[in-house]
Simulated assay, not measured.
Amino acid sequence: MTNTDFSAPRDITPNRMGTAGFTLSLAFIVLSFLYGIISAIIIGAGDSSYKMTDSVFLQFSTILMLNAWLLGLILSVLGLRSHPKGKATAGLIISLLPIISIIGIIGSQISTPISFENELKERKAQVIERIKDVRTAQRAFRAEYQRYAEDFDELERFLHTNPTELRCDIEQLRYIPNSDNEFIMETGFTKTSSNRTGPFIEVRAPYKLFLDTIKYRQEIINLIDEEVNGFDRYPGIKFGSTDEADNDIGNWE
Rank of each mutant, 00 (worst) to 15 (best):
residue 79 G to T: 08
residue 90 A to S: 03
residue 54 D to E: 01
residue 125 A to T: 15
residue 108 S to A: 14
residue 42 I to K: 14
residue 62 T to M: 08
residue 76 S to Y: 02
residue 35 Y to T: 00
residue 38 I to A: 09
residue 28 F to E: 10
residue 64 L to N: 07
residue 48 S to I: 00
residue 59 Q to L: 05
residue 28 F to L: 04
residue 97 L to P: 04
residue 123 R to T: 01
residue 40 A to S: 13
residue 51 K to H: 12
residue 139 R to M: 07
residue 93 I to V: 13
residue 49 S to F: 15
residue 78 L to M: 01
residue 32 S to A: 14
residue 98 P to G: 00
residue 127 V to W: 00
residue 94 I to L: 14
residue 115 S to E: 10
residue 95 S to K: 07
residue 116 F to G: 04
residue 105 I to N: 09
residue 31 L to N: 09
residue 51 K to V: 13
residue 116 F to Q: 01
residue 96 L to M: 15
residue 72 G to Q: 11
residue 128 I to T: 04
residue 87 K to N: 11
residue 127 V to G: 03
residue 122 E to A: 11
residue 128 I to E: 09
residue 35 Y to W: 04
residue 52 M to A: 07
residue 28 F to A: 13
residue 29 I to G: 02
residue 29 I to P: 00
residue 85 K to D: 03
residue 51 K to Y: 14
residue 121 K to W: 07
residue 74 I to A: 10
residue 75 L to G: 06
residue 128 I to L: 08
residue 32 S to E: 15
residue 65 M to E: 12
residue 82 S to R: 08
residue 99 I to V: 02
residue 38 I to C: 05
residue 65 M to C: 08
residue 34 L to W: 12
residue 34 L to S: 14
residue 116 F to E: 04
residue 94 I to G: 07
residue 92 L to K: 11
residue 119 E to Y: 02
residue 40 A to V: 13
residue 119 E to H: 04
residue 90 A to M: 01
residue 131 I to Q: 03
residue 67 N to T: 14
residue 133 D to L: 12
residue 102 I to W: 13
residue 111 S to G: 09
residue 140 A to Q: 06
residue 73 L to C: 06
residue 106 I to F: 12
residue 34 L to V: 09
residue 138 Q to L: 13
residue 70 L to D: 11
residue 109 Q to W: 08
residue 126 Q to C: 08
residue 55 S to C: 10
residue 47 D to C: 06
residue 37 I to G: 13
residue 110 I to S: 09
residue 118 N to P: 04
residue 35 Y to N: 09
residue 41 I to P: 01
residue 102 I to S: 04
residue 61 S to H: 12
residue 118 N to C: 03
residue 67 N to V: 07
residue 117 E to A: 15
residue 93 I to E: 03
residue 93 I to P: 05
residue 37 I to W: 11
residue 59 Q to T: 02
residue 53 T to A: 15
residue 122 E to H: 08
residue 141 F to G: 05
residue 62 T to F: 10
residue 75 L to E: 03
residue 46 G to I: 02
residue 136 T to D: 08
residue 95 S to E: 11
residue 109 Q to R: 06
residue 50 Y to S: 13
residue 64 L to G: 01
